[in-house]
């Protein structure tokens, strides 16, 4: 997908070497903690604590075995995290796409204010809105349920999706839809058949970012979940208990939490970059 570098055609071998050195240093900075986390998760606690650091050792999978055993229940938390993030992302994308399109095409009075209001709904400090949200959720019986959690995630994902999809649609000329409507499409058909496919990479990029926000959330999940609906970040925070920090499990949790995203990341990274490059950031 990337063509030959355009800006750097005349760069010499030295420049390229410098660039690689920079990139390698950056990668060490980014990856060393992660590598250390993965290695630590494969050690016994005694091994984990022994300094100077060891990079070669006999790995043990005991921590993982324990976490995924019936009493560890980690598989369950993972499932909760996946379900809550995917559902809230899906809801946000559907509503955000429709709303974003309407916002981009409609002629609203004070349209700019409207779109800023949309994104501003995501800005409220969480602890301050927790009480009203909790009261609402409690009245509806949503505390501790998966529906409640999905809805809580939607509170920050929907404004984001709506706003960013709007910027994508603004970059797609309305003339294309108008042409379609001349050909006999309804307004919705024109949107569905013409505009939406063009915005697809943007949709994917938005979806990935929404997934990331939901996947990483701790503030909402810590209050709105119960044992049955607990997500991975909440489970991670519970490893700091009165009897000490369960470092082995903490490191294993960290490893597991990036795995799905690593796998997904490999597949979707190019859509992410392409998607972002078409709308929001052009």
């Amino acid at each position: 997908m990337m063509e030959q570098t355009r800006a750097g055609r005349k760069r010499g071998a030295l420049g390229t070497a410098v660039l690689y050195v920079i990139v390698v240093i950056a990668l060490i900075w980014a990856l060393l903690p992660i590598v250390w986390m993965v290695l630590s998760s494969l050690k016994t606690q005694a091994g984990m604590f022994s300094m100077p650091p060891k990079f070669l050792f006999k790995p043990t999978f005991d921590t993982y075995r324990q976490m995924f055993s019936a009493s560890g229940g980690f598989g369950h938390y993972l499932w909760n995290s996946v379900v809550a993030s995917v559902l809230s992302t899906a809801i946000s994308l559907v509503l955000g796409t429709l709303g974003g399109f309407a916002l981009a095409r409609g002629h609203f009075k004070r349209g700019k204010d409207l779109s800023f209001w949309v994104i501003s709904t995501r800005m409220a400090p969480i602890p301050a809105v927790m009480l009203p949200l909790y009261l609402m959720f409690s009245k509806l019986g949503l505390i501790g349920t998966m529906t409640g959690l999905v809805f809580a995630y939607t509170t920050f994902n929907l404004p984001f999706a709506l706003w960013i999809m709007m910027t994508f649609f603004k970059d797609i000329p309305p003339a294309l839809e108008e042409a379609g409507m001349v050909d006999g499409c309804s307004k919705f058909q024109a949107f569905w058949k013409i505009t939406l496919p063009m915005a697809a990479p943007g949709l994917v990029a938005t979806g990935i970012l929404c997934l990331m926000f939901a996947w990483n959330d701790y503030s909402f999940a810590s209050v709105f979940t119960s044992t049955a609906t607990q997500t991975v970040p909440v489970a991670a925070s519970l490893l700091v208990s009165q009897e000490g920090v369960q470092w082995g499990q903490a490191m294993a949790t960290g490893t597991i939490i990036i795995l799905p995203m690593l796998i997904a990341g490999i597949f979707v990274r190019k859509y992410l970059v392409r998607g972002l490059s078409m709308g929001a950031v052009k």
Partner: peptide, 27 residues
């Protein structure tokens, strides 16, 4: 600007994004 390995580098560089902040703190 690097001529080769851009996708690999970008994918690896993105990894910290998916470590939940709470885990980043623990780490």
């Amino acid at each position: 600007h690097i001529p080769k390995g851009r996708n690999l580098v970008a994918t690896l560089w993105m990894l910290p994004l998916f470590v939940a902040p709470i885990v980043t703190g623990l780490l």
